[in-house]
Simulated scan of single mutants.
Amino acid sequence: MRNTVRVSVVAVDPVLEAGTLSALASSPEVLPAVGDELPDVTVVVVDRVADPVLDLLRRTRAADHRPEVVLVATELSPPEALHAIATGARGLLRRRETSGPRLAHAVLAAASGDCTVPPDLLDGLLEQRTEDAGAGVADAWGAAGLSERERAVLRLVAEGHETSEIAGRLSYSVRTVTTVMHNVTQRFRLRNRAHAVAYALRAGLL
């Protein structure tokens, strides 16, 4: 790990932002980015992982200096965690479980390229990726909101097939394949086919 990590905080209110920075102050390896300094890691503190939060994660990761992101949420379910990781979050924490040392550890891990996820949440993600997840637990595709048809189309897109080839292989019309891809990109607020495939690959869905 590097000697010092610069961090910024984005929170739902200034008091929470100040409290988060204060919690990190106990770690000498983590310093707030001040003035024109660019953060190595941005901590995003939210209530729930909704579309605006995912948009914020994308914008943060897309900045020129491409900071890593640690997401701290009041509520964080396995499906929400799946979306957050696919969108670019490097660390995930629940607010009620987030002490200063634990947050600092997640920030330092993110800066070094590691990912931090609560053990029980990781178990939930692993359960979702099994073929037989058990009663009441959806598989990863279901948790991500993708149907069997959408999965089939995405897999063929990932293999490099054009729309007409996909239609022929799956016995769909070209219009159906186009509609499927449009629905996927719109639902998950993705830019294009390549972004949709990257999203699915990053989430471990392909």
Rank of each mutant, 00 (worst) to 15 (best):
A89I: 02
D132R: 15
R129E: 09
V30I: 07
L76V: 08
L76Q: 03
D13L: 06
E131K: 10
L82N: 07
P14L: 04
V30Q: 01
V30D: 01
G113R: 04
P78K: 09
V43N: 05
L125A: 11
T20R: 06
L108R: 13
R66G: 03
R66C: 08
Q128E: 14
E68G: 09
S22Y: 11
H65Q: 07
A63K: 14
V53W: 05
L103R: 04
L76S: 03
L92K: 04
P28W: 03
A23Y: 03
R90G: 05
S22K: 14
V53K: 06
R48M: 10
H83Q: 15
V44G: 02
A81C: 06
G100S: 07
V46M: 05
D139V: 00
R94E: 10
L21M: 14
T130E: 09
L82Y: 08
D55T: 14
L31Q: 14
P14E: 12
L121I: 09
R95A: 12
R102C: 08
A140D: 02
G19N: 14
A81G: 11
V70K: 03
G35P: 07
A23W: 08
A140G: 13
G124L: 09
R129S: 14
V43M: 01
G91H: 01
L126S: 00
A110W: 01
A63C: 09
A73H: 02
L38A: 15
L54A: 08
L125D: 09
V107Q: 03
E68L: 00
E127Q: 14
S77N: 05
V41L: 05
L121K: 04
E29W: 11
S22M: 12
D13H: 11
L76P: 06
S26G: 15
L108D: 04
L24M: 11
L21H: 07
A110P: 02
T130Q: 10
A25R: 15
E75M: 05
D36M: 12
V69C: 05
P101E: 07
P79K: 06
E80R: 13
V53I: 11
D64Q: 13
L54S: 08
V72A: 05
A110S: 10
G134H: 05
T87K: 02
S99L: 06
T60C: 10
L103E: 02
